[in-house]
Design a protein around this nucleic acid. Structure first.
Lengths: 244, 244
DNA sequence: GTCTATAGTCGGATAGAC
DNA sequence: GTCTATCCGACTATAGAC
């Protein structure tokens, strides 16, 4: 089976001690991962050839062996990279939300504001940025046939993102945030954002758009915001409900 | 580039006349396509080997050449197959909806009923059925890097599905069904259903489910139905709006 | 129409020079 | 640490027997 094996080592654990400092080696590793994300994203693990990986990275073939113990190691390093980058982007807002929820019981308006902030960040990142195109294909392949790479991304990013979303949706529906219904809603919100990346070609053709950036991205975000607000009952209607 | 070329012929056009009747040939073709959907779904075009295709189909290697003029031909035949099967399942309800909308101006309740029916059919098919697992990966890869196969599926299925959904969403939002905002909503509805297939591994882990079938599929469908109703203002609220 | 045998190419990984 | 040269298995496609 052409899938990552257990042979791969941690991408930053050297097989031989560096000659001194971290200069060349880490640079080369970064070049390889950057190129590999694109190649694995486009062709998948089996379809990607080590020769293409090396060529796009501007290194020679044995470098993949030396730095990552082969193709499977490069693949896992890509998963690590994706998890790191997503964490860096989503981490701060997740932390904010967790912090607010831990210290107070926010008003309905406040919950909506946090949810909108979260989904906007999500949309800017996943729909708006070029580099995630490769990540998304990488991740969806892993969803269909999970390997160790899926665990890395799920544990470090996806799990926390959905839980955070559910912690906002739960109170808005007057249900515990672990309720399956709440989780379905949270997943649906994240899913509808993601769709504008995964089905991008179809979205562009349907809308007659050249891309989803600037005003067009803003339109998508605002429509989805309205949709989320209405789907959860809205702030005004809920306040009314609370008074009764 | 390891992508389908123009060399592929129509999958049902024989290179040589049949000996009489359609017996063996079409059976073999069907076996090959069925196996190929799984293999291309799992490994992608580049990652799929003709050896594996032949083995899983229970035919010998040159059969792929003979019946489909090679790997690329088999790939296009898969796209054709996916489009046909989706058309068969979604066609009737799309026809129903088109027919109702052409002959009358349905009530708000009626529009919701049609929309729910459409999305339920969509969910039963895409989330509930095993065989679409391979289709979805096939299609998402095509979304990222469209080939001729994407045109086939987009023109025959996707375009009509989204337009139909928009024709129900438009009236419910008091906007023309071609308005970008309406299309964003329609895409979001379809996207949130699809997410439960594309991100299945994550959904199962988050929910702690073994699959999305039976009661669990029913839960997803009912939660999404509620969500769609609320997101579009609901039947009761809208009737109120109309009276004012 | 169906299959065996094989041609020609490209794949991942490594040996060993520097 | 870095690279050239190379091994050998797997790949797609075809020739030609039946």
């Amino acid at each position: 089976m052409p899938m990552p094996t257990a042979r791969a080592q941690h991408p930053h654990k050297r097989r031989h001690p560096p000659t001194g400092g971290y200069a060349r080696g880490d640079e080369t590793r970064a070049k390889i991962v950057a190129a590999a994300l694109e190649v694995f994203g486009t062709y998948g693990f089996a379809g990607a050839s080590t020769r293409l990986l090396a060529e796009k990275a501007g290194v020679n073939l044995p470098a993949l062996q030396y730095y990552f113990d082969g193709k499977a190691g490069v693949y896992l390093a890509c998963a690590e990279h994706i998890a790191q980058r997503l964490e860096a982007r989503l981490g701060p807002i997740i932390k904010d939300i967790t912090h607010v929820l831990a210290s107070e019981a926010p008003s309905r308006e406040h919950l909506f504001a946090l949810l909108h902030g979260f989904l906007d960040t999500y949309a800017d990142l996943l729909v708006g940025e070029r580099e995630v195109e490769d990540w998304v294909l990488f991740i969806i392949r892993e969803q269909a046939h999970p390997t160790k790479a899926f665990d890395i991304i799920f544990d470090r990013v996806f799990h926390r993102a959905v839980r955070t979303c559910a912690m906002l949706v739960g109170p808005l529906l007057d249900l515990p945030s672990g309720d399956p219904k709440v989780l379905v809603r949270a997943l649906a919100f994240i899913g509808q954002v993601l769709f504008f990346r995964t089905a991008r070609a179809a979205v562009l053709r349907i809308q007659g758009w050249p891309d989803v950036k600037g005003d067009r991205l803003a339109l998508v975000k605002s429509a989805l915001r309205e949709q989320v607000t209405a789907a959860l009952g809205g702030a005004a209607r809920a306040a009314r409900r609370r008074r009764s």
